[in-house]
Simulated assay, not measured.
Amino acid sequence: MFATRTNKAGGPRRSGTVYVAVAGVAVLVSMISLTAMHLARVDLRRSSTLRDARYADTLARSGVEHTLTKLHYIWLGGDWRDVYENGTEYSSGVAIDGGSIAFKLVDPLDGDLANSDDEPLEIYGVGRYGGATSVYKATFAKGYSPTELAALEDGVSTATSNVYRDSWIAQYFIPDLPPDAIAWGVSSVELMLSNNGSDDADMDVCLYTADGAGAPNAEIEAVETDEDDRPNTYDWVTIPFSSVSSIPPGTGLCIVCRSDESSKQVRVQFEGSNVTQTDAHLLFGSQYGWGAGETDKALWYRVHGFYVTEGGTDSDFEIVPGSWRKTTAD
């Protein structure tokens, strides 16, 4: 027989088993520690990235404001339109806590800063901090006048269009502007909308450029609406826009109501006959294309915005309200 060794307490010795168990626990603890260290490094990098992005945002907005101050200073001693090239990025010469500020000036009407003292200006502020870059822009103009650009808000032949993937609706319009207006823009659109009794029915309200036939061509800006944004019975709904400015006079745009929902629908109210608006028409279409414009029909709509005019002095230039927006470095 083989003898079994016992410890002093009289039990069998299992030192190998205990060693394996202890080693396993040690490995597990080490893995947990390494995982915790890795997650801590990830959180640190994420925090650093978010910090850099916030600092870059602040620097970019400051870049617009710094440029305004700089332009006013140059106006006192010369013509800034002859100093800077359109669309060229310039360093501001300002460095803050390791970050930097740059700017560029763009004439949105014809790309030429020097050919007119009256045309609006887009000021881009570029903020860089760490690995982050942020860009803000604002439109700078004189002779700014807020106004209702176009509207149809009553009638006797009210009709309804159900908007979903295969049924879109659009309104083409050209605003009636004063003769001395040199540009215009949109700050908001009001439409008569209603939910259709279905949940989660999303619809985009967009502004598009128009082709030669007055049909939607290229998207300028889209604003998503859902059922919480709309009433269950028809009422006016305001949709804000921030990227539609510096449109030349005589240029039309299209308000487009579109959806990719296959069955859930949103109801849009329009006037079905006897509309006599100038430079305006209603279009029906889908993701596949648009029908011909119908001049005797129109959405119930209100377009709010502004126009800018010639005249005044350089000191009359101001930031157009609602024109601030975050953009790209292009």
Rank of each mutant, 00 (worst) to 15 (best):
G252K: 03
Y19V: 02
E294L: 11
V135N: 02
V268W: 09
T295M: 07
F173G: 14
R45K: 09
G87Q: 01
A23Y: 03
W80A: 03
D229Q: 10
A26Q: 08
L149K: 09
P249C: 10
D82F: 00
M203F: 13
M1L: 11
T276Q: 14
Y90P: 08
T69M: 00
S245A: 14
G98V: 02
P240V: 12
S30R: 01
W236G: 13
R45L: 14
G311D: 11
H72M: 07
V29R: 00
I96G: 01
L50K: 08
T69D: 04
K142E: 04
A9I: 11
A114T: 07
F284K: 08
L34G: 09
L193R: 07
W80V: 00
L193V: 06
A329P: 00
R302A: 11
G11T: 15
V256G: 13
S259V: 01
D314F: 06
L191C: 04
A201H: 09
T251G: 12
T233F: 11
D228W: 06
R302N: 08
V186S: 07
C254K: 05
L28R: 04
R41E: 14
F103D: 07
D166C: 01
P249L: 08
A213C: 01
V94Y: 08
R46G: 07
V29L: 15
G99N: 07
R302C: 05
H38P: 01
Y136P: 00
D199K: 01
P216H: 01
Y124V: 06
T276G: 10
E65V: 14
Q287P: 00
T278F: 04
E318P: 00
T17V: 14
A215H: 12
G87M: 01
G252Y: 04
V22K: 00
H281F: 13
Q265L: 14
S167D: 07
V189K: 02
W75I: 02
A141V: 09
A215E: 15
E65C: 03
T238M: 02
I247C: 06
G77R: 15
E221D: 05
R51H: 15
D316I: 06
P249R: 06
A292S: 14
G93V: 08
D199S: 10
C257W: 03
E294D: 11
A292L: 12
D229N: 15
D228I: 00
Q269R: 15
G98N: 11
S245I: 06
A3K: 13
S187V: 11
E190F: 01
R267M: 10
S30F: 14
D57I: 09
T233H: 07
E122D: 14
G10W: 13
S33C: 09
S323A: 04
G99C: 03
V268Y: 08
H38C: 09
D229C: 10
A114Y: 01
P108G: 10
P321I: 04
S286L: 10
